[in-house]
């Protein structure tokens, strides 16, 4: 009987323990479930955010090679224009040297003429007219040798052409300024994307450098290029001339089809299919 009671008590104790364990499990469950729910929500929210981060990083990283290419273009443009300016300056310096040579020869001839003229004057005063006539021949020979003016004028016109070339080359400054503005714009848009992302992740913010003013997109041409072949102007002129002629004939403006036709013609010229003398600068 005692044995039977003991067994029963042990069994009840065991059941009570199991109930306690179950209770503990339920309590743990009650605590864990909201956490799991929160975790589930987090994962659900993080998915699109990761997608967005991925997209933004992809977009941003696509812009970096473009910025890098633009920087290469700036470097190239600067190098080409600087070389052209230096070449023109070399030519000018050479021509100044040549002109100096011509002027020196002319100066010597002038000094010689001055001397002979002085002598002639003295001979006239003394009435030694046979010497006057001899010296006059000398004077005339020296005068005839004074023929550097045309050479100097020619050199001056060459120098003017070199100066014009420098003025053309200096336009690279405006072109590179537009290329750099395009790079600034790319960098600013990457910065904006990163700011937006960091803001989403934890209200972090990259401070924008207030000294850098963001330029209006309309204030620069990202495709600006330093092309001195004259091909672009030629293409534009084909269009303009076609339209002007047509306006004169018909009294109205050209249609889109006609402009397209003219442009196709110009593009053929640019690609070398047509005959054109490029390099009209």
């Amino acid at each position: 009987m005692v044995n039977g009671e003991t067994k029963l008590v042990k069994r009840v104790d065991s059941i009570l323990r199991e109930i306690e364990e179950l209770k503990a499990i339920f309590i743990l469950g009650q605590r864990v479930i909201p956490f799991l729910e929160e975790l589930f929500h987090f994962v659900r929210e993080v998915g699109p955010m990761l997608d967005e981060i991925n997209k933004s990083l992809e977009e941003s990283s696509n812009k970096i090679p473009r910025a890098s290419n633009q920087l290469n273009t700036v470097t190239k443009t600067t190098e080409v224009a600087t070389t052209e300016i230096l070449d023109a300056l070399d030519q000018m310096s050479l021509k100044f040297g040549e002109m100096k040579g011509f002027i020196n020869v002319m100066k010597q001839s002038y000094e010689k003429q001055k001397k002979i003229a002085g002598r002639i004057g003295r001979y006239i005063e003394r009435g030694e007219f046979d010497k006057v006539s001899k010296n006059w021949v000398k004077f005339y020979t020296a005068f005839k040798s004074l023929n550097g003016f045309d050479d100097i004028l020619e050199k001056l016109s060459d120098v003017k052409r070199d100066a014009d070339n420098i003025m053309v080359a200096l336009q690279f400054q405006d072109i590179t300024a537009q290329q750099i503005s395009a790079i600034n714009h790319l960098i600013e848009s990457v910065q904006e994307k990163l700011n937006h992302l960091l803001g989403k992740l934890g209200n972090l913010d990259i401070k924008k450098d207030s000294s850098v003013s963001s330029r209006n997109v309309a204030s620069f041409n990202p495709d600006a290029e330093y092309d001195r072949t004259g091909a672009k102007q030629k293409a534009v002129d084909e269009i303009l001339n076609g339209i002007i002629e047509r306006d004169e004939e018909a009294g109205d403006r050209a249609s889109q089809e006609e402009i397209d036709e003219l442009f196709n013609k110009s593009e053929k010229i640019k690609s070398g299919e047509g005959d054109v003398n490029s390099g009209n600068f």
Binding site: D164, V168, Q171, F172, R228, Q233, V236, L240
Partner: peptide, 8 residues
Amino acid sequence: YIVKPFTP
């Protein structure tokens, strides 16, 4: 219409 760079 003129395209830069241009000559005088």
